[in-house]
Design a protein around this nucleic acid. Structure first.
Lengths: 216, 216, 216, 216
DNA sequence: GATGAATGAGTCTTCATTCAT
DNA sequence: AATGAATGAAGACTCATTCAT
């Protein structure tokens, strides 16, 4: 850094930009909280503002309108959700069935952790965002495709390595796996299960995934 | 009319009651159509009335308010949906794996038929009804439990008969199966798949259900 | 009329339609009064409703929005204004200068009568309607063209009959005449002149129109 | 700098005052541009500030409020408009009809030049400023009186010199002349006339002014 | 029982203005 | 003096619901 550092004006600008970014973030959080608690349609902009202790007008200094903030809330939630899924996608893909099983459990546990720590995330994505307008519904449904694609890469890897059935219809099975996970998430939203019981749920899911139900 | 039949007054009363019942039914249908097409919040009572060619005031002669008609619409839709599931549950439960597989396919096909013939049914249940208020969300989630219970009876039967794994955690596996079905339904809503492609989807689901993904 | 007259239902329908038409008319009047008194932008829909003793919501049962009612108000006002101008345009066009002069005076008096009886008509057209949006401005300016066309037919008639200058540039002179009238109207809006003084104003206008200012 | 000039402090003060005056002027220009382009009500203070590249807050360091700047804008525009009219009013008043006619054309051409170079001036005065509030309307209408007074001095001069009709009602005729000019201005705003066509319009106006329409 | 006009509470959104920095 | 974020009052518009006919 040159002596004297950046000029005062410049620093002030940066500070304002930071504060604005922070405000935008806080609004997303407040909006998320309200949407999750009362639903999008039942939430007034005034509710969001009140939660933050600011005036309704302030909201509009940061977001264009109610639909706009919803988009940003959904973005943030999706990002968090997808992050969990892909973070577990370690560069070293599983090479044995045991590793595969372990990874499946890790993903299951991670998703469960999200739902457990903040059920509102899943609730918003699954229940709220699908009924606002066609454009957003489409976007949420697109997530299913994304998850299915991810699942397919896992399955393809397993087939290539030889620890999954060679005749697996990976595309359609990936859909089925995705469905299982979505269903499990919905299930988790509802349950008042303790940690142990939840562990059993995951285990049953993973077991079904690996072995099916057929007797041997 | 046979002598001694019911008195004229009585008959008129019955007729009026029938007409009223029919009107209530027509309103449910109109409301369903509107809710499915535009969403609950985007639908005005006037829209429902207009679809029927009656005045908004008439609506309130048959249903208490907007929330009330939604309940009735959901009831009707749930009834139709559950009917399909249980109709396939023939009194003669499957005794072999082949019968079991056949039945699973039949259910899958039946669900697909609903979605295909009127995607609005699934859309309403999955996307719309979950975001109105907590009470209704609860009720929809209750359906998952119901479906899981149904699945469990199937699984228990299979275990008892010996064509399913003896060590199956039927309760939790039933949840997983339900999730698969829900996921498949969501998938079907989105896809523009032709009948053949859909058949492959079901097949993959049923195969996963029976055999899992593990190589043998 | 056939015995029994029109059916009750039919009559009720007609009555409702009449009442609706009357309501629409009353709203136009109330809106006109408010717009003229306070200006378009300073008038709230609630003001119009309050003047009629109805609720704001009622307004929207009859007109789409605020811009919509303005259009209807302007229509009504234009109609009234143009009516005066064309009513004086008797089928028997003037054949002598004296008749021509008399007709010019009649028109002047008629316009003055409008302005005198309800200055708000002119005020709305001249001052308010020109600054709402481009589309409406264009429409008002179109009125000038219309008036100029009308004036041109008068002038052409005079030239043909020989009591007006043969070398008259009737098109551009018609513009000038229209301008005089518009200016006179604006003048009338401002003045607190009594009837006699106003008569002198018209006389001066008509004299200027006929003879110009040149000494002979 | 001359020895003994004004003290440094004093000079700095003056400089500041000059800068402030310049800023006030720039704001008037920016506000005029916005008002003329979008209309007073459609213009936000933020628009004016944005056009200048300053913040909305700065505006309020120089003008009290939105109404205040409008007054100043109107003042500036009126000043420009009246300047044209009076500049042509040379100290040596016309002594012959030819000179009079020439002057009338000069005024007409000058007004046309304003409208042609910046139609927004006329548009603002004629269409926008008349619908803000009674006080401003009054002021604009006062301009008509001013113009009429000016016209009257021209006419009186002509009568005195003997080249205009001795029996001219100069006061009321002045009104008529003013009306003609206002009408011509409105006409000019609308027309897409080329320079030649416009020349014809003026000629027709001046001819009407001098000779009227009567055949001789 | 059907009607449909009237209601008015509820919300989004804008923007002139203020004021702490 | 410049800034620009915060304010909050104001107003257009919607629509579930009521009720007189």
């Amino acid at each position: 850094m040159a002596a004297g550092g950046e000029p005062t004006v410049r620093r002030a600008e940066r500070k304002r930009a930071e504060q604005a970014a922070e405000m935008r973030h806080e609004i997303v959080e407040a909006a998320f909280a309200e949407f999750a608690a009362r639903g999008y349609h039942q939430t007034a902009i005034a509710d969001i503002a009140a939660r933050m202790g600011v005036s309704p007008g302030t909201f509009y200094n940061y977001y264009k309108n109610k639909r706009d903030i919803l988009d940003h809330v959904v973005n943030a939630v999706v990002k968090e959700f997808m992050g969990v899924l892909t973070d577990e996608n370690a560069p070293d893909a599983p090479t044995t069935l045991e590793e595969y099983e372990a990874q499946a459990m890790r993903i299951a546990v991670a998703v469960d952790a999200i739902v457990d720590s903040d059920p509102r995330v899943a609730r918003l994505l699954l229940f709220e965002a699908t009924s606002i307008d066609p454009e957003l519904s489409e976007r949420i449904l697109g997530l299913y495709d994304l998850m299915a694609q991810l699942a397919k890469t896992y399955l393809d890897n397993g087939v290539r390595r030889g620890f999954l059935r060679a005749d697996l219809d990976t595309a359609n099975t990936a859909d089925a796996v995705t469905g299982m996970f979505v269903g499990a998430t919905i299930r988790a939203l509802r349950s008042d299960l303790g940690p142990d019981a939840r562990r059993d749920v995951f285990a049953a899911h993973v077991r079904l995934l690996l072995d099916g139900v057929r007797a041997r």
